[in-house]
Design a protein around this nucleic acid. Structure first.
Lengths: 204, 204
DNA sequence: TCGGCATTTGACCATCCGGTCAGCGCAACG
DNA sequence: CGTTGCGCTGACCGGATGGTCAAATGCCGA
């Protein structure tokens, strides 16, 4: 019987991972509908029926990727500590988010694809966990603003701006590199630029 | 003979437009591979063979959309005038770009889709016209910085930041609205937020 | 009114796609 | 050494998909 539950043997663990990695590659670039099982199979170096031995359907592979995604994605925001120094906490968040964009661009693009399509498979999480977390952190930001420790701006749009500016480097990588010219590494420049931008913005 | 050239009669003009509008709708949400001619046909209210009477292929419809796109997209940047007041010019660019995101979100998403896929059908334009325009405007920005009229930051990343922050509201519309809560119009808030952000960033 | 061209469509085709299934090779174990 | 069950595959299926075509319909000027 196909192991549609969590991996149990070593072979299952390895192939599970191989398939998810290949699927991430293709889904991130082509979106859900644009991706075929054959493409995933080829990237994974496995046969199509073998894919379906480990996952019950294309849907299930996609779901598995999305399920893992949001946790990793929101971790840096969760780490923002009310007790720390406001500017330092926010700058650390920006830096971690930019590192995520650099180190996990495929995950960023998978997420972007889902958003572009109207989040048909993530609505619940977005309106639930994500909104709750943002509301929570927005309260922290408001507190810091009330205390005069950072400038008063719309706290949710402040968070949006961090998302937009960091994910842009992963999602629009081709454009960024084409415009900067070959040989330029965008990320150190981006880090320096965002450092200045947010420091100025937050200055009370 | 099918009019695969530019529209000549009134009917051709109307149907050309109807098809492109419907195609924009679907391509923007599903990407190129994820879109089917049947979907476009249904949105357009035409039969599939009729679509192919006006365009030789699905590719051709997509190409037609992309060809129109970049011009509209880059117009506000082109309008940035070396002779004007630096901060006013940049703020006007931000505002126009945000208006574009609000009024033409489908175009923004079509572009985003293309970028996510690695710009397979736009590489040339990106590396050619787009890069040339950005290089040109970056020179203007450097001049303004040399004159001490705006703060010194990486000019290309400054442009990136305008793109990222404005397009985010179109591309991630679902997320933005879900997090802000129902009934909130993101755009006035975004306009106010970006006004503050860029004014502070540009302050010498 | 009528001839001719523009427009539209139903039927069709080859290919692709997600998914199924019977069975093969093989290692573990009695 | 036979059996059992995991991992894997070739062949296949029904439906979707991009595209074709001959024929039907609509529109317009002479």
């Amino acid at each position: 019987m196909p192991p549609h539950a969590r991996p149990r043997t070593r072979i299952q663990a390895r192939n599970h991972e191989t398939i998810l990695d290949a699927a991430l590659e293709v889904f991130a670039a082509q979106g859900f509908r644009g991706t075929t099982l054959d493409q995933i199979a080829e990237v994974a170096g496995l046969s199509k029926p073998n894919l379906l031995y480990y996952f019950p359907s294309k849907e299930a592979i996609h779901q598995a990727l999305l399920a893992d995604l949001l946790d990793v994605w929101l971790d840096p925001l969760r780490a923002m500590d009310e007790g720390g120094d406001p500017v330092a906490e926010l700058m650390a968040y920006v830096r971690r988010k930019l590192d995520l964009a650099r180190d996990y661009p495929r995950e960023s693009r998978l997420f972007a694809n889902e958003m572009l399509q109207g989040a048909p498979r993530m609505r619940d999480v977005i309106e639930g966990d994500l909104k709750a977390l943002v509301d929570d952190k927005a309260q922290v930001l408001r507190l810091w603003m009330d205390q005069g420790r950072i400038a008063r701006v719309h706290p949710v749009h402040l968070i949006f701006s961090i998302w937009a500016l960091t994910q842009h480097y992963a999602d629009f990588d081709v454009q960024v590199r084409a415009v900067l010219g070959p040989g330029e590494d965008p990320y150190p420049q981006a880090a320096a630029f965002l450092e200045v931008l947010f420091r100025k913005l937050l200055q009370p």
